[in-house]
Lab assay of single mutants.
Amino acid sequence: TGIVNVSSSLNVRSSASTSSKVIGSLSGNTKVTIVGEEGAFYKIEYKGSHGYVAAEYI
């Protein structure tokens, strides 16, 4: 489990890349469940599926 540490919002992406499609966003202080790690990204549970967020902001 981690907490989103941004002042505005954090993009949730379809894969572990900044060039991948943005599938949603999370606001600051949102609690997320981390299920894996790929490079600089965490794989998280997101809306019944999975998404990827930049690990530096969690």
Rank of each mutant, 00 (worst) to 15 (best):
G28S: 12
V4P: 04
E56H: 09
K43H: 05
V53A: 04
N29W: 14
S25G: 06
N11C: 15
S8H: 15
Y57A: 09
I58T: 02
N29S: 09
V4Q: 04
Y46P: 00
G2R: 08
Y46A: 00
V22P: 05
S14E: 15
K47W: 07
Y57I: 03
N5P: 04
T18C: 15
K21T: 12
Y46K: 00
S27M: 13
S20E: 03
V6A: 10
Y52T: 00
S15I: 06
S19Y: 08
Y57L: 08
V53I: 08
N5D: 06
Y52V: 00
G39I: 03
S19V: 09
V12C: 03
G36K: 06
A16F: 03
I44K: 00
G24W: 04
G28L: 10
S17T: 09
S8N: 12
K21F: 08
S27P: 15
S25V: 15
G39Q: 04
T1S: 11
L26C: 04
G24D: 02
E38K: 06
Y52R: 00
N11D: 15
G39L: 05
I34L: 05
V4W: 03
L26N: 00
V22I: 14
G2P: 04
R13W: 15
I3C: 13
F41I: 02
I58A: 02
E45R: 07
H50R: 04
G48T: 06
K43Q: 07
A54D: 11
V6D: 05
G51F: 04
T18P: 14
T1G: 08
A55K: 15
Y52D: 00
G28H: 14
N11P: 15
S15K: 11
N11I: 15
S49R: 11
K21V: 11
I44H: 01
A40K: 11
T30G: 05
Y42D: 03
Y46R: 00
V22E: 03
T30Q: 11
I44G: 02
Y52N: 00
T18W: 13
I58N: 02
S14G: 08
G48E: 08
N29F: 14
F41H: 04
I58G: 01
T33W: 10
Y42N: 03
S27A: 14
S9D: 09
V6N: 08
G28D: 08
L10Y: 02
L26G: 00
K31W: 13
G51E: 01
V4M: 05
V22T: 07
I58V: 10
N11M: 13
V22W: 05
I23M: 07
S19G: 10
K21P: 14
K47G: 12
T33A: 07
L10I: 15
T30M: 10
R13F: 15
L26V: 09
S7C: 15
V35I: 14
E37S: 14
K31E: 10
V4K: 04
K31V: 15
I58E: 01
Y46D: 01
S8F: 13
N11W: 10
S14R: 10
S49I: 12
Y42C: 07
S17M: 07
S14Y: 10
T33L: 09
E37D: 06
S7P: 11
N5F: 07
V12Q: 00
N29I: 06
Y42I: 09
V22M: 05
V22Y: 05
S49T: 13
S17C: 09
T1P: 08
A55M: 15
I34G: 00
R13S: 06
R13C: 10
K47P: 02
V6P: 07
A40L: 12
Y42E: 03
K47D: 11
Y46N: 01
V6S: 13
G48L: 05
N5H: 09
V32I: 08
E37K: 15
A40C: 14
S19H: 12
G48R: 04
A55W: 06
E38R: 06
I23A: 02
S14L: 13
V4C: 07
S7D: 11
S9V: 11
I34Q: 00
A40R: 10
I3P: 04
Y57E: 07
G24T: 02
E37Y: 14
A55N: 06
K21R: 12
S25Y: 14
A40P: 14
A55D: 02
S8Y: 11
G28E: 09
K31D: 04
S20A: 13
T18E: 13
A16Q: 03
S7L: 11
L10N: 02
S27T: 12
S20P: 01
N29E: 07
V32Y: 03
N29A: 09
Y46T: 01
S27H: 11
L10C: 15
N5L: 10
E56Q: 12
S19T: 13
S20D: 03
V32R: 00
G36H: 06
S25Q: 14
V22A: 06
Y57R: 06
G2I: 08
V22H: 04
F41Y: 10
V35T: 07
T30D: 10
S14W: 08
S15F: 08
Y52G: 00
T1Q: 11
G2K: 06
H50K: 04
S19C: 13
S9K: 12
S14D: 11
I58C: 03
T18H: 15
V32P: 01
N29Q: 11
T30C: 12
K31N: 08
F41R: 01
T18A: 13
V6T: 13
Y57M: 08
S15H: 14
S9M: 11
T18N: 14
K31G: 06
G36D: 08
I34V: 06
G36C: 09
F41C: 05
V32D: 00
K43W: 05
N29D: 08
T18M: 14
T1A: 10
Y42P: 03
I3H: 09
I23H: 01
K43T: 04
A54L: 15
A40H: 10
V6G: 10
V35G: 01
V6M: 08
S8M: 12
V4N: 03
E56Y: 08
Y57Q: 07
G2F: 08
E56V: 10
S9T: 11
I3N: 06
V35A: 05
S8T: 14
E38A: 07
T18I: 13
S7Y: 08
L26H: 03
T1H: 13
S15D: 10
V32S: 00
V32C: 03
G48V: 03
V53H: 00
